[in-house]
Design a protein around this nucleic acid. Structure first.
Lengths: 194, 194
DNA sequence: AAGTTTTCTTAATCTACATTATTGGTTACC
DNA sequence: GGTAACCAATAATGTAGATTAAGAAAACTT
């Protein structure tokens, strides 16, 4: 069923009564996003948490020279949003769009806040998600400070083997923090060097 | 009183009954850490969440060439730990030591897990902390991908004006991701350029 | 199927930052 | 109070990766 992936993820961390689960499901909205369509643009308020069930989205910022820097790719099973904007409900700095035709499930900030009051177990669920995500970003930051471009690329391949196949090279470059030209040169001059 | 700073922080996000607060306090352990003393070393399991009430700690990793990269500074009012190690209770990759003589309050992973069961409101407290921290790391990552060393330095000064005063330059360098030599040159060649 | 857009490749040149080495100035400590 | 340990400054040299520019190869569009 449509919510299976999300419910599986929820049940991995918390147990719910049938009516709690039903209430949760009643708050969810299904939505399709076509390739290259925006889910969010810089300056907008991120009013929904979005869970990807098919396709792939990405969040990124555009710097003052017009270059894109990818914060996150979200294949099925991942949440995506502009955290800062979502938490404070103020205009954000990130763009989010679909790199493939995608299907997502959305939960509004208002509904989420009410969900916390009605089913406090969700506090735990999102605490655990946030903590794991936090540890991941800390690790990525350390990697960016200490590894070479080649090492960051190998890392990415190892961490997201499914993404490497479906993403254009320039997106990978914008994630690991090099120009597309340099990534191309690197891959063709020292192929598969590990 | 000794726990004031921590309780103020807790009350900013959640309300507690007197006996809930008393229970929380009963789980806390006070500890002093002398300058340069280790709170945690690479390969150890991080069994305690630590809240700084005086002084300043830092967490950092050491790369294969022996260079330090600072993940976080923790002045009074901040939590510090190796998140990955704390969550999984497996050996971690970070070092944590005191940059000044410090005083901290510790809460063990076991006690914290029990606290969640006894006083579920703490799920919310630590969810909020994790979410805010997550947004901060995302922002720092984007900065590292898109800004020059000079801009990252200015950013640091603006974000942590109190730290700039008490930290040696080489620690700031290890945080923003440049060598101490380059930071020194940068500051003396283009002083205060903003 | 031709045309348009996007992505990848290659190569020359450039630069932000690293590396190495030396110095002098503090602070910590037997 | 001397010596070790640490920290900042400076400078010469080196390099990973950026920039610019161009053309080739895919990939969508109609």
């Amino acid at each position: 069923m449509m919510h299976d992936l999300l419910l599986t993820s929820v049940h991995k961390h918390i147990s719910l009564l049938p009516q709690e689960e039903a209430h949760f499901i009643s708050l969810l909205a299904f939505r399709k996003i076509k390739r290259k369509q925006f889910l969010l643009q810089e300056g907008e308020v991120n009013r929904y948490a979005s869970f990807v069930i098919d396709g792939c989205l990405r969040s990124y910022s555009i710097d003052k020279n017009g270059f894109e820097h990818v914060l996150q790719f979200a294949p099925p099973g991942w949440w995506i949003g502009d955290m800062q904007s979502f938490l404070t409900q103020t205009p954000g700095t990130l763009h989010i769009d679909a790199v493939d035709d995608s299907e997502i499930i959305q939960l509004s900030k208002n509904d989420l806040d009410q969900l916390y009051a009605v089913v406090p177990m969700f506090e735990r669920f999102f605490r655990i998600l946030a903590e794991k995500s936090l540890a991941t970003y800390q690790h990525r930051l350390i990697n960016n400070l200490s590894l070479s471009a080649r090492e960051r690329y190998n890392n990415f391949c190892q961490l997201y083997p499914s993404l490497i196949q479906c993403l254009p090279q320039k997106q990978v470059a914008a994630y690991i923090g090099v120009t597309p030209e340099f990534l191309s040169k690197m891959l063709n001059q020292h192929p598969n060097k590990d």
